[in-house]
């Protein structure tokens, strides 16, 4: 019998990378400079590469006809377990960078733990992904500083983006049922333990970037349980169109 908790746990990890990779893919050819265009496409490519590793593993656990593509393209909105942060739109470059930074800092802390998982496949994927996530974090942190400590306009744009996206950070540290089960088995990461480090690191970079830490008392959550923002349906409608229109074919 398949390990449902492990399967759900993997989705909880991989869906973040899929949806963020999809968001970054929208930007291709539209970046503010050729260099940032290449960098964002590169990050998207890394994230989607990670997704394939996770989903191939999940498909094996699921058995039957499951594949990385059935997992990506046939699930419905309520079955996606990504956090709300990664599905937020590419409003402008400041939002893209703020979203990336808020995710990357978490991602590095998370992978750094996951590489010690007792599950050897997850540990191997985490090791490979960690190298990439460190690069992503460097890119987004550098841009946080450039925008925060750049011009008045860039400062106010990145400050706005940070204020708007901050409400989605707390969800990163919520434990799902699958998280708790996997934690007991020494497979999963206790994300609650990452929280203090996470906010400290954000503070350091934002201080240097002269960005004020948003004063947010209320946070948003739900993505991990499949209760998403209204953006999610559109992301999936676009992403899944081909598999829905032409089911069960090889590409």
């Amino acid at each position: 019998m398949m390990n449902k908790n492990l399967y759900n746990y993997i989705l909880g990890v991989a869906d973040n990378s899929l949806i963020l990779g999809q968001r970054l893919g929208e930007l291709c050819g539209h970046g503010p400079s050729l260099e940032t265009d290449i960098a964002l496409t590169n990050i998207s490519l890394d994230l989607l590469g990670q997704v394939r590793g996770y989903y191939q593993y999940a498909a094996k656990i699921l058995g039957g006809n499951a594949s990385e593509d059935t997992i990506a393209f046939i699930r419905k909105e309520r079955d996606y377990k990504n956090v709300l942060l990664v599905e937020q739109p590419n409003t402008d470059f400041a939002y893209v960078i703020a979203r990336q930074f808020l995710f990357d800092v978490y991602h590095v802390l998370f992978l750094d733990q996951l590489q010690h998982s007792r599950d050897l496949t997850l540990s191997a994927i985490a090791k490979k992904s960690l190298k990439e996530a460190l690069y992503h974090k460097r890119f987004s942190s550098d841009w946080i500083k450039r925008l925060g400590d750049g011009t008045d306009e860039s400062h106010s744009r990145i400050q706005n983006a940070m204020n708007d996206l901050w409400v989605f950070t707390n969800e990163l540290f919520q434990l799902t049922e699958a998280d708790k089960e996997m934690l007991n088995e020494g497979i999963g990461v206790d994300v609650t333990q990452l929280k203090a480090d996470y906010y400290n690191q954000l503070n350091d970079v934002l201080n240097e970037a002269t960005i004020e830490i948003p004063e947010v008392k209320f946070f948003q959550k739900g993505g991990k349980e499949g209760v998403h923002t209204e953006h999610m349906g559109y992301i999936l409608a676009e992403m899944q169109y081909m598999q829905r229109a032409y089911p069960n074919m090889e590409w």
Partner: peptide, 24 residues
Amino acid sequence: GNWITRAPSLRRKVALLAKVQDEA
């Protein structure tokens, strides 16, 4: 780039992204 978000499989999506990146 018009088809990156709609590529029919993950493998094709990744290959298309890599290609467009090469072009840049």
